[in-house]
């Protein structure tokens, strides 16, 4: 199956997709690297110019494709390289959290953090903390869940069509 870990022997580890803004958080992650800070290897970072570029669809896509968590990193309020893109992300974050909670996705799985270019240690602590929390929550496995839902739907549809056929035959008789 496409969405499971490559080897069955490997223990499950949370997978996090991170969207980091070029000017603050991506640079902070570079700083963490240059400073040789060690943190959990569960995060894969996608660079965007501004956290304001993070489309809610990116976050939903990441969850749908099997991410256990999504992290968005932007500049501190007032520090945005593009004046206020991070505020736009903040608004989307609050709206999205409501949608995600309706879908049964725990709020710890979607996180927005302000990390400035000098805060390499914060990249480390945020990622480690998030990995710890997600490890506690366990896999989200949305692709598996979706496959399960699809199966349920198929069964339901089949039952319906059987019922319909029976009904039709009943009227004929």
């Amino acid at each position: 199956m496409e969405h499971t870990n490559p080897t069955d022997a490997a223990p499950w580890r949370p997978r996090i997709v991170a969207f980091f803004c070029n000017w603050c958080t991506y640079t902070a992650a570079d700083l963490a690297g240059v400073s040789r800070m060690k943190y959990a290897p569960n995060t894969r970072i996608i660079r965007v110019m501004c956290s304001g570029r993070v489309d809610p669809q990116f976050i939903l896509e990441a969850f749908a494709r099997g991410a256990d968590g999504v992290l968005v990193g932007g500049c501190h309020p007032g520090d945005c390289h593009y004046v206020e893109g991070n505020y736009k992300m903040l608004r989307r974050y609050h709206l999205l959290q409501r949608i995600l909670s309706d879908m049964g996705i725990e709020k710890e799985r979607f996180r927005l953090e302000w990390i400035s270019a000098s805060e390499g240690d914060k990249v480390k602590s945020v990622i480690n903390d998030m990995v710890e929390k997600l490890t506690g929550l366990g896999p989200l496995a949305l692709p598996d869940q979706r496959a399960e839902w699809d199966r349920e739907m198929d069964i339901l549809e089949e039952k319906m069509s059987v019922a319909e056929t029976a009904e039709k035959e009943g009227t004929h008789a």
């Binding site: 496409e2 969405h3 499971t4 870990n5 490559p6 997978r15 997709v17 894969r44 996608i46 965007v48 489309d55 669809q57 990116f58 896509e61 990441a62 494709r65 099997g66 991410a67």
Partner: peptide, 11 residues
């Protein structure tokens, strides 16, 4: 960006 997300998460 979508292909990047999908690529990250697909084995």
């Amino acid at each position: 960006i979508f292909s990047e997300i999908d690529g990250l998460l697909t084995y």
